[in-house]
Amino acid sequence: MTAINAATGGARPALRHRLAERGIDRQLLLLIPAALFVLILFIYPFLYGVGLSFQPTEGGALGAYREFFTDAYLRDTILTTLQLSLPAALLNVLASVPIAYRMRGRFRGKRLLTTLLVVPITLGTVLTAQGLLNFLGPTGWFNRTLLSSGLADAPVRLTNNYWGVFFSLVITGFPFAFLLVLSYLSGIDPTLERAAATLGAGRWQRFRRITLPLLAPGLATTFCLTFVLAFSVFPSAVLVGDPSGTTRVMSIAAYDAAYVRYDYPLASAVAVLMGVVELLVIAAVLGWRALLYTGSTAGGKG
């Protein structure tokens, strides 16, 4: 017995097996192309930009940041951007819930309806902006209807200001939010609400006590994604907004710094600050999400 143990060396298994047990084997080599891609096209430019933001022509390492926070025209872009993106993201998520809730079952024409709701994604921001200008502009259909029906004396201004950008963000952001919420809702076992019904819960109680708590983590994630989309708004802020005034968002400030003033360190600093603000909002939302139940949404063993 001892002899056998000695012969096999009381031996630990071969190195290759021990590594494989921890998930390290040759298949890992397949990751190299993707890793290189991320490194060259994302991580390097990102770090380069961060580095650049700390090398302004004057004012030391933090000069660009100091400039951003002392210049009200720059500093206020944070508030402007948040004022646009937070309500737009919130509206997108909240409006998706009842529509997706009604549409989670199977019914005739569901595909057609889903397609129609998702079309704005495929149009792109520019086409949406043009449509908005034609429809909501001072001589657009909306205002002409208002004027001819006598509901308004003068055209209501809905483009080239805050509302133009807001509508554009809702039109392009809603489909994303809707698709995400629909898929989260479809993942919730429908027998849970049936069970709640047999236990005496009415329609509202079933939604409030069962579906909503199970959906809430998904809503938080959806909110983060639509918020990020809305936060980096650039084309519609220029096309249907007021890019030098009420809709001067951070991305416009970064663009100005880089291509009007050729101040790359300042532009990089604005970009970094955009990321920081986004991360703060997302951290707050995900912090709230962590307090919720995030496990399985099935009612038991399949």
Binding site: D189, T191, L192, R194, A195, A196, I210, P213, L214, Y293, G295, S296, T297, A298, G299, G300, K301, G302
Partner: peptide, 10 residues
């Protein structure tokens, strides 16, 4: 009592 129990997971 449902076949998959339909317990409220949260």
């Amino acid at each position: 009592v449902f076949q998959n129990y339909a317990l409220f997971p949260h």
